[in-house]
Write a protein that binds this DNA or RNA. Structure first.
Lengths: 231, 231, 231, 231
DNA sequence: TATGAATGAGATTTCATTCAT
DNA sequence: TATGAATGAAATCTCATTCAT
């Protein structure tokens, strides 16, 4: 058995998020810079195709053809088509979780941390727009236990974000009325739908969208200005 | 070939939302109070199943079994599986478009109309949660020309909503900074994602969510309070 | 759903043992005597092929080609390749069980009933030699619950036979020493292996083999001749 | 390519039953007492797995995993999966042939030799129950020429046994009526089916079964008692 | 002596759709 | 208005085997 990407592979192990992210060529690969290692190539093409025509509408045959290998090779590295999807999810989730954790830990006012976190998730969602598209369209096509794993990771992300909002409300920097969990669902609904309308060649850069979204979020939470306290 | 539900079948005809929703028996149906007419039953079961396991994962066989008819019957009323999905889309779109148009035409301040429209779309999305789920998961699985038709209707809806925002900004009732189209995408992202987290047996009623979402939207657009102008 | 041969179909229902055995043409079939109905043809070809090259070595493709239909047709009638095998088993088992029950109930001395039963199972095993071959080679390739069902039916058959032997021993017509269950396993081992050596074009008719096997069985159970009791 | 176990490898060489069974380490193996040599381990696991789930249902991958080696290693020692099966067959056949030859040569009355041979084959079949199971289920899955080779060896074994029966009939110690070849098929059918019902943890020891089977065989051949000749 | 990535052919099964009745 | 047998194409996955190292 080769290193099949099994379920519990989150957390740095697995089919080489390390290699995949670092861009380092796996041992046994040909010239660096030429063709990437097979698993990475498979993941990249799968991501592109899933985003383009959906998980169910993309056949394994199309993926391997795009990656220039045979089906046997795919199944040498990934246990199933499901695994491929799961691995794609894992990559984005890990990336965004790491970044959010870093931002949440910064020694700056909580409103600033929220603004930064909001802007950051928009930017990374746009930078990985294919993954974003796939995520919210295809989660239901994952096997039940893998789906649970992904949802659990997602929930952890949301909870971290919610904690920031709660902190802001406790400190009186944000309006106390909105329910934090609803705010999170409200904001991330917007983020997750970036994939349905954002285009790289449109009029807006990722950063512009990020700034606007972040601004809209904070304005909706901002306490009413009190006399002598011009925001 | 009898009255197949072709694309342009909007307008309240046979299989339309009106008859289906109101529970009125369509002409030519058996005893009222018995089982609903076949096309309605097919649409209802298809909606349920598509929401439950996705369009591609639902087989025609499953739909007809759930509706208690045979495949021949389905193809008697609908030209294809695609048609079924398209018809489901049509129902929600028509419903929500009608309501938005009515609200937009009311002789009340624009902020009030926006608040109402926002709350209303949340309520109807939750009331038709299955349709909402299907909509944003399965659009891509529609054939290209049907997809275009649906997107066009959707766009019209968004434009109506955007016009309200523009009006509010022109009149100085809303902050001028946010780009209206971005605001629309921002808000409807949230609405469309209701299907991923809202549960009827959860702690919140549709109206509570509607009030909060509407409130968040308006606060994010509210101009900064000026002295002597308490909002 | 068409009449798929589901597990519990033993006992006269199912994919038409009635039609299959009686040779009656199913409604909707063409000229009687011409080509048999599709399910029957599939079963017949599957039996032949499974006997010839084994269950695992026979592809569904080969079966449908031999039967002159498409794969879709096979799966219209049978839920799986497994089902086909199960149905084949069912036919022989039902046939032999019926015959044994009839013989066991005859109002003749038990030794005679045993002799007849032994001869009969040999004859019917040879007449359905393909089924016999398949039975003892392929049972293990059946799914677990179907395997259990088949074994249960088989056990019932063995128990009926064993009861005859016990009766003979109780009545003093057979030697008391041999354990009845071992005798059953001993004899049916021989019967089941007919498929490995018997050929229709060999020197022996089915009846000759039956007579010899029956004779060997009874001689091995015959009590020692007592003076004045020439058997 | 090193010493691949080719078809004609009988005669006690490297991978032979002698070394494997006795637990002696083959030349070139590591420390005695540690894990067995690789080819032996492969054969042992293959035997277990083939018996458990059948030849076709056991993948090469499963065998090498069970043996703790890689596929390359298997193909280093054995030319094919077929070879593995053939080698397993060879082991039992050689063992049983040797023992039968020894028994047949003993200077005791032929009835005694038959009784001993019958009991012996039962005992060794039970002691190597996995091989027994495999033998009669999987012969057909061997390539044609290997199948022929195995059948030829098997035939030789049967002929030796048949000769004993013929001798007994010639000498008037056995009933002359039964056809010797049929008797052989009759008895070995029983023996070969031991694998389908015997369990080591059942109520009977191998020796008890052997005694009963041998007894049943001889009673079925025993001439009718003549007055003044108490058996 | 052994590895393990990769192949390529083939396996079973599913499914939307058609059509004679 | 409805049936249901049948199609044919495509889908996912498995597996024995090879070969450069």
């Amino acid at each position: 058995m080769a290193r099949k990407a099994t379920s519990g592979s989150s957390g740095g192990g697995g089919t080489g998020p390390g290699t995949a992210r670092a861009g380092a060529t796996a041992p046994g690969t040909t010239a660096p810079g030429a063709t990437a290692a097979v698993p990475e190539r498979l993941l990249a093409e799968a991501t592109r195709l899933f985003a383009e025509r959906g998980y169910d509408r993309t056949s394994v045959q199309e993926i391997v053809e795009a990656a220039g290998v045979t089906k046997g090779a795919l199944y040498h590295y990934f246990g199933s088509k499901d695994d491929l999807l799961h691995e794609i999810y894992g990559r984005v989730l890990r990336l965004q979780t790491e970044r959010l954790d870093a931002i949440a830990a910064r020694p700056v006012p909580v409103t600033e941390r929220i603004a930064e976190a909001a802007a950051d998730v928009v930017v990374t969602s746009i930078q990985n727009l294919d993954d974003t598209k796939i995520f919210f369209r295809s989660i239901h096509q994952l096997g039940p236990e893998k789906q649970k794993a992904v949802r659990a990771e997602r929930r952890r992300y949301h909870e971290t974000f919610r904690a920031l909002i709660e902190e802001g409300q406790r400190d009186g920097l944000l309006r106390p009325e909105p329910r934090p969990d609803l705010v999170v669902d409200y904001f991330f609904g917007s983020v997750h739908h970036l994939g349905t309308w954002y285009h790289a060649d449109g009029p807006l850069t990722a950063e512009q969208v990020a700034a606007e979204f972040s601004d809209l979020l904070l304005h909706s939470l901002r306490p009413p200005a009190t006399p002598g306290d011009p925001t």
